[in-house]
Nucleic acid binder design. Structure first.
Lengths: 150, 150
DNA sequence: AACGTCAGTTCCCTAAGGGAACCCCGATTG
DNA sequence: CAATCGGGGTTCCCTTAGGGAACTGACGTT
C-alpha cells in the first residue's frame, strides 16, 4: 500500500525504495535483465495482474530505470534497462546471494551465475570502494553527510 | 499488498523479497542496525503506523532476521539483528550506494559511512566472491542451478 | 471484412496501510 | 494500597492498492 512517501526522506535507502520498493518491481527488473522485455512475456512469467504490471512499468520508466522503445510500426514496445537500471542489478545480485545462503536449503540455489572474467559460478562479495577490503555491517560507522536532515 | 506469495518461487530474489520486501521492512532493519532497538523509538523515528510496525517486527522475528529480547523484568523488549539479519545489511549498503549515486543530487549523500579498516568515507563495491574482480550486471551469465524449477 | 496479437484499461472484490483510541502489565509514587 | 506512568502492543474504521477477468484499440494478416 505504501501511501507514505519515501522519496522525501533524507535517506538513500528510503529514496531507493521509492524507486523499486513496491511489490513486484525487483522481479520485473530481474526479468527485464534476463531478457524478458515485452509486456506479455513479463505478465506470463510473473503471473502479475496486468493492471499492476502497467503501473510498475510506468513508474520504472518515469524513474529512468527502464526505457520503453518501439520495436515495430504497430504500437508495440519493449522495455530495456537504462544505465541507472543496470546499476540496480547490483541490488538483485546481493539479494540473490543472501537468498542462496539463507533460504535455498538442501536443494541449493535455483539459479547460478557464471562470472565472465574467471568463468566460475560465483556470487558477489562486498568490498570497500576505496581500499578494497571487505565491508559489511560491522565494518562501518554512519555519520551525517552533506545532504543530512532534508 | 503483495497477496501473491513470493516464498514458493524458485528464485532467491523472490524469496528474499518475501522476508524483507514488504513496505517499511528495510527501513526497520536500517533503524535497528543504527541502534534504534525499541518499539517506541522505531515508531517515532519512522512515523509508521503502530499496527504495521507490529506486523513487520513479528514477521522479521519469525524469519530469524531480528531477535526479540527482554531488557527489563517488566514486559519490555528490544530488537536486535541476528547473524542472518546482519547479512541483510549488505543489501542496505548497496541501496545506499545506489541512492547516493543516482538520487542524492546537488546536496550530496545524507549519510556517510566510514570504513573501519581504512578510515575513509566510502561505499561498497561488488566483487566476484571467487576471483575478486568486479562483478556487475553485464559480467555474469545466469544458468539453472540445482534448486531450479521448484 | 473478419481475425489475431500486443499492450494496455476498466470494473469489482478483497486485503492491507494510516491513524487514532484503547488496553494490559509491571514499576513507581503518595 | 489506590493512582499514575510508560512501553508495547490491539482494535476499529476508513481509504487505497492488489488480484482477476473482461473489454478496448491500433495495427497487420488472410
Amino acid at each position: 500500500m505504501q501511501r507514505t512517501d519515501f522519496s522525501k526522506m533524507a535517506c538513500s535507502i528510503a529514496r531507493t525504495l521509492d524507486v523499486i520498493g513496491e511489490p513486484w518491481s525487483p522481479l520485473v527488473l530481474r526479468d527485464v535483465w534476463a531478457g524478458l522485455n515485452r509486456f506479455e512475456q513479463l505478465q506470463a512469467d510473473l503471473g502479475i495482474s496486468r493492471k499492476v504490471l502497467t503501473e510498475r512499468l510506468n513508474h520504472l520508466v518515469d524513474q529512468g530505470v527502464l526505457e520503453r522503445r518501439p520495436y515495430d510500426r504497430r504500437p508495440r514496445h519493449e522495455y530495456v534497462l537504462t544505465e541507472k537500471g543496470a546499476d540496480l542489478v547490483d541490488l538483485l545480485m546481493v539479494m540473490t546471494r543472501w537468498g542462496d545462503k539463507w533460504l535455498a536449503g538442501e536443494t541449493g540455489p535455483p539459479v547460478l551465475y557464471r562470472h565472465h572474467t574467471c568463468g566460475e559460478f560465483s556470487g558477489v562479495d562486498l568490498r570497500c570502494a576505496h581500499c578494497g577490503e571487505p565491508m559489511h555491517a560491522n565494518d562501518v560507522d554512519p555519520l551525517p553527510g552533506p545532504g543530512a536532515t532534508a
